[in-house]
């Protein structure tokens, strides 16, 4: 008797837990999409707040630049070493140039830039908006007859959309240069062949595909981080949770979206 009752409560508790989590997740997804929609519609409404946009471009872009540069340089360099090791086993060192470039342009450039920016700028966005929420600054904006989505979210959204592709271009070139330097000067691959092979086997689509990915990642980072910050509850602890949540969720979404985008764009 007691066993069945216990099993019953265990079962219903588990169900309630799963149900509760599902409802919360669906609520999050729904509110996230509502915010995304509002952001899009406010983006096209005048006047444009150029000052705020430039400020965010600086925060997201310029300040992420050193980290992105170091990341891209060393990624390109290690890519060269590993490709060389692999290709040497079947005497194909001459073909390593395009492989390094392709990996950089299609995958590592956009994805690693996305991950770094979500850790750096996404966390900052969530923390800033979260603090503004818990100190009633967002409410204050509303009482001053200013739409907080337009004033706070739109500039970050535009910054994410514009800056991610730019950073990716920089990351791509830095990575390719790093790969070239290691290949030619450390591994002694023929420079001329390396460059020619890279040029011959690369397509413009490789570059653009990567940049489209970067735009999507920029949208993911800004919308997720702003959403998490915007709906922060519960003081300093809440801001911490929102920040962690923003970074974890944007990173996961970037990696998931990356697969589907790759399947869609490159096939």
């Amino acid at each position: 008797m007691t066993d069945t009752v216990l099993a019953g409560t265990m079962f219903t508790k588990t169900l309630a837990y799963i149900g509760g989590r599902t409802i919360r997740l669906m609520g999050d997804v729904g509110r996230g999409f509502i915010m995304f929609g509002q952001t899009i519609s406010w983006t096209f409404k005048l006047p444009v707040n150029l000052g705020n946009i430039f400020q965010q471009v600086e925060a997201v872009g310029v300040n992420s630049l050193p980290v992105v540069l170091i990341m891209a340089l060393f990624t390109g360099m290690v890519l060269a070493i590993q490709t060389y090791t692999g290709f040497k086993r079947f005497n194909a060192e001459n073909y390593m140039g395009p492989v390094v470039a392709l990996s950089m342009l299609r995958e590592l450039g956009p994805v690693l830039t996305g991950l770094i920016v979500s850790g750096r700028a996404g966390a900052a966005m969530a923390a800033e908006l979260g603090t503004m929420r818990v100190t009633e600054q967002i409410d204050a904006l509303v009482t001053l007859a200013t739409n907080p989505v337009k004033y706070l979210v739109v500039p970050r959204f535009i910054a994410g959309l514009v800056v991610l592709p730019l950073l990716t271009v920089i990351a791509d070139s830095t990575g390719i240069i790093g790969g070239y330097l290691v290949s030619v000067h450390v591994l002694h691959v023929n420079s001329e062949i390396y460059i020619r092979m890279t040029r011959d086997y690369l397509e413009l689509n490789d570059v653009f595909g990567g940049l489209i990915k970067a735009c999507v990642f920029g949208i993911i980072i800004s919308v997720v981080s702003c959403y998490k910050g915007f709906f922060t509850e519960g003081g300093a602890e809440g801001v911490g949770k929102a920040t962690t949540g923003a970074v974890v969720m944007s990173m996961m979404l970037i990696l998931i979206a990356n697969y589907f985008l790759a399947a869609l764009i490159f096939r």
Partner: peptide, 30 residues
């Protein structure tokens, strides 16, 4: 809302703006 003013408990000043930009915020916006 342009006919309202509200003073918040913690003042809720925008901490990325200077004092005068805070005070002149609605003038700048509207």
């Amino acid at each position: 809302r342009k006919r309202y003013g509200m003073l918040f408990q913690g003042a809720a000043l925008f901490d990325s703006l200077t004092v005068w930009e805070n005070v002149g915020f609605s003038l700048m916006q509207h």
